[in-house]
């Protein structure tokens, strides 16, 4: 049986299986929940088929809407229906990129997808072949697809509501599906692009959190425009402040501890060395957005934001890290959530 026939046979078999037992889906569960994956997958009413890379899971699910509406959906970083798969080791497969690109063209070339976005199953792989496989596949496939598929140069240019063809590839094979970035919960396969945290300019890992949050926000609304004024409470040492300043925002940073010395005299920064609970905005000062990544009891932190939100303009944005110290299990978190409703 030729390669093409094998693919078609595989797809037909998969369709028959879906009809009987549910749809194949790829989900990503962050490594922080390692040890709880089975609990999450079973809780979604799904069956685990195979783990791919560090944190992707191929599952079969009878009610895919649970991926978005179950209380357990919050533990999923990204998801994609699997409309096409080729389990193989690309490195050991002659002409993998050409065969894979041709197969994607045959299967999806006439679809209404806005573009093709490829990503690695394991972005942290030390092997150069694995790291470049996704970009090489996208490059070749876009040579074959209609020219409009190439119009999107940056993943964030995608319309979040229109379907894209997402493709994950790695030493486990190739998995592709059509779905909008908003439904997938990210513009990139897996959710977000890699954000480095070990450059000499990195003040704290919190910077990556706000960078990803602002990226994710674009799935549902426009981020505040450049020049917008943010209030950040609990800002020290300044990891998030740095990211906001890099986007040409103004930042009012409040913390009883001073910010990192590298932020001294930074344009657009106004620093108040004060406890968030004691901070009173100067008369007439308003904010376009507010940010809080404080440690401690999340209720106390939100009370401070609620108090200060009198100075937040209507429609203004709030990004808040809900910290859950002391929570040791998925079940405990979900139970707390359901009990308080």
């Amino acid at each position: 049986m030729g390669h093409d026939q094998t693919l078609m046979h595989t797809c037909e078999t998969a369709k028959e299986k879906h009809a009987v037992t549910g749809a194949s889906w790829l989900i990503r569960i962050s490594e922080i929940f390692a040890g709880h994956e089975s609990e999450i997958i079973v809780g979604l009413g799904a069956q685990a088929l195979r783990k791919l890379g560090r944190d992707f899971h191929l599952i079969r699910i009878k009610q895919p809407e649970a991926i978005r509406h179950s209380p357990l959906a919050r533990y999923l970083r990204w998801n994609m229906p699997v409309h096409h798969s080729w389990p193989c080791n690309p490195r050991e497969t002659d002409g993998f990129i050409e065969k894979a690109a041709q197969a994607l063209l045959r299967k999806f070339g006439e679809s209404k997808a806005q573009t093709l976005i490829c990503g690695p199953i394991d972005p942290g792989s030390p092997k150069r072949y694995d790291r470049t496989l996704a970009s090489n596949l996208r490059g070749r496939a876009l040579q074959l697809f209609p020219s409009e598929w190439s119009a999107i140069k940056n993943a964030e240019q995608q319309n979040p509501k229109k379907p894209s063809l997402f493709c994950l590839v790695g030493k486990e094979g190739l998995y592709a599906g059509l779905q909008s970035p908003a439904e997938c919960d990210g513009f990139f396969p897996g959710g977000t692009k890699f954000i480095p945290q070990n450059s000499p300019d990195t003040i704290s890992r919190a910077g990556a959190k706000i960078a990803e949050a602002l990226h994710h926000l674009q799935l549902t609304r426009r981020p505040p425009p450049g020049g917008a004024r943010w209030l950040e409470i609990g800002a020290s040492p300044g990891g998030m402040t740095t990211e906001l300043l890099a986007r040409e925002y103004e930042v009012i940073a409040v913390d009883r501890a001073p910010l990192d010395a590298r932020l001294k005299h930074r344009k657009g920064l106004m620093q108040f060395v004060a406890d968030a609970a004691d901070f009173m905005p100067p008369p007439g000062l308003t904010f376009d957005a507010m940010l809080c990544d404080m440690n401690g009891d999340a209720r106390d932190a939100m009370r401070q934001l609620a108090r200060l939100s009198k100075n937040l303009r209507q429609g203004g944005l709030v990004i808040f890290t809900l910290k859950l110290p002391g929570i040791s299990s998925i079940d405990e978190t979900t139970t707390l959530e359901l009990r308080s409703k």
């Binding site: 962050s30 922080i32 919050r74 970083r77 990803e212 949050a213 890290t321 929570i327």
Partner: peptide, 10 residues
């Protein structure tokens, strides 16, 4: 729960 979150949600 975003990639760079730990025992916390955004």
């Amino acid at each position: 729960h975003l990639t760079y979150n730990r025992n916390e949600f955004t």
